[in-house]
């Protein structure tokens, strides 16, 4: 079953994924970087603050799922990224592979364009790691 592969997969690639998340955390204003699986479980996370990972993981999948549906309703095909602009910062979400998502949380002062660029650059790297999971 794929779920057993996912556990083994996560263990074998944890170092590489942690390194990628650490790099993203080094960007100005980024306060959390996380990988979330299709059930909404946070499989990897680096963060500067306490967060309810169960609630965060479920919210990420729900928000991205709703955005993807909205994109299809207006004929925009696939959603590639969701950006939530909040009073205190931004949340950026992007699909990786096999239902896994990358989520970044930033402060308001973060350079959104830079973070968005790095996110887009990171996704293909993560995809290569996750593609074996399919």
């Amino acid at each position: 079953m794929s779920n057993i592969h996912s556990i083994e997969f996560r263990r074998s690639h944890s170092g590489e994924i942690d390194s990628i998340l650490r790099n993203l955390m080094s960007l100005q204003g980024v306060t959390a970087a996380a990988i979330i699986d299709s059930d909404g479980l946070v499989t990897h996370i680096h963060r500067d603050f306490e967060v309810n990972t169960d609630a965060l993981g479920a919210s990420v999948q729900i928000v991205f799922g709703a955005a993807s549906k909205a994109a299809r309703h207006v004929g925009h095909n696939l959603a590639n990224m969701v950006i939530c602009e909040n009073t205190e910062g931004y949340i950026l979400l992007a699909p990786v592979e096999a239902g896994f998502m990358l989520a970044l949380v930033t402060e308001r002062e973060a350079l959104l364009g830079r973070v968005r660029f790095e996110l887009k650059e990171t996704i293909p790297v993560l995809k290569k790691l996750f593609v074996n999971f399919l």
């Binding site: 299709s38 059930d39 909404g40 169960d54 609630a55 993981g57 479920a58 990420v60 999948q61 729900i62 928000v63 991205f64 799922g65 709703a66 993807s68 549906k69 239902g99």
Partner: peptide, 17 residues
């Protein structure tokens, strides 16, 4: 699922949790 697409299982799982 009509509203959330692939996000639906995460919501249902979270509710069950």
């Amino acid at each position: 699922e009509d509203m959330l697409g692939n996000g639906a299982p995460a919501l249902v799982y979270h509710s069950g949790q």
